[in-house]
Nucleic acid binder design. Structure first.
Lengths: 211, 211
DNA sequence: TGTACATCAGTGAACGCGCGTTCACTGATGTAC
DNA sequence: TGTACATCAGTGAACGCGCGTTCACTGATGTAC
């Protein structure tokens, strides 16, 4: 048993990571369809992937770890997509607009992950809530900086970038959730809402907003 | 068996309604503690009330009906409390302030029912989603009217009461959820947020807001 | 006032189900010699 | 090139659990006569 010590760590043979990502994708699908983390069961995931449930244990210690990966991926994607949108512009108002638009787009396109990302409901252990919180705080700093850049450029009347960024964020959050949740509500045009919950709350001056 | 036809309907003997309301209260407690409608099981409710699970069937056709009653009660309470707050004032700005403050207070004091009330996640059948929607729409009309009253009194610069009321609502919604969910976030003072997401979005003029 | 009986709230056992997780296993894959 | 064998991905059966719901029941309560 302990004879050969050379040749350590075989390194997965092609599968391994593939199955792992199939598991995560299936879990994400189920979550997107049901909107309920409780329905992301190991057996349901395994059925969708076409494997037996115990196979999942080769890649994740338990059910919670699967869900955590899905949510962590969603955070990473949101962060990436917002950063990409912002960095396409140099004008501070355009950067703010693009970042917020990307945020709202993500929330509309992935309503269920979005909803669960910012929900305290305890499928997550304390340590992971904290790490998700750090990710979120980092993203929020970007928003504060974007508002501050508008102030510095004389394009916003804001006198408190942090508080105004917080207002923009909560408004975007509420709009995202309600827009995807209450489809029957006679929502004003998207641009009208955007003008109010982003530009007005950020104190962007009218002539600046008009570009 | 079919001899006596006189003396119909005995009318519960004291209990009956009492047990029913104990069931609803227990379900509401469980929901408030867990934040997860799935954990409001008939067995858990029965354990808390101190009865056997099948006893619940004397008062509700199934599990879903219990949850529905809890949520319906929460809607009724929100509506009542907001209306009561508004009707304590005659000044339109004060009415708007009081109504919104009451809304935010409700959401902070009953975070879990609040969260589930406005969530599309399907524990509810279509017809009940619709009736909840009607309740919510009615409450929203009150907000629109409050904003319009400010406009009519020359206290708001708003030119679209409906769109501005929608903006106020989504912002209050997002603030409510995030404030109770992210307790570690360094939130600005409550008044600072209130000023932004209610008064500024409703277009209430500075001198009017200052009273 | 007394008694037979209808009514009613509530019980306890049982059903079938889907779940997370464990465990001993199987068969294909690649490597050492 | 051939063969023994370690490794590894994945399986199938089984466990104990909590669940919603059904069903036949029990015993207290109140009413008709």
């Amino acid at each position: 048993v302990n004879s050969r010590v050379v040749s350590r760590s075989r390194n997965a043979r092609g599968e391994g990571t593939r199955l792992r990502s199939e598991i995560v994708a299936a879990a994400a699908q189920i979550l997107a369809e049901s909107g309920n983390p409780d329905s992301v069961t190991l057996r349901a995931v395994a059925r969708r992937v076409g494997i037996s449930a115990p196979s999942i244990y080769a890649h994740f210690p338990d059910r919670e770890a699967v869900l955590l990966t899905v949510i962590g991926d969603a955070f990473a994607e949101l962060s990436t997509t917002v950063n990409a949108a912002i960095s396409q512009h140099r004008d501070p108002v355009l950067r703010l607009r693009a970042g917020c638009a990307a945020y709202l787009r993500f929330a509309q396109q992935r309503p269920q992950p979005y909803r669960i990302m910012f929900q305290q409901s305890h499928p997550l252990p304390e340590s992971d809530v904290d790490s998700a919180f750090d990710l979120g705080a980092e993203a929020f700093d970007i928003l504060v900086a974007a508002v501050q850049a508008c102030i510095d450029a004389g394009r916003s009347t804001s006198v408190d970038a942090f508080a105004d960024a917080a207002a923009v964020w909560v408004a975007m959050h509420g709009y995202s959730l309600l827009l995807s949740g209450l489809k029957k509500f006679p929502w004003p045009a998207d641009e009208a809402m955007f003008e109010r919950i982003v530009l007005r709350l950020a104190g962007v001056t009218a002539e600046s907003a008009a570009l």
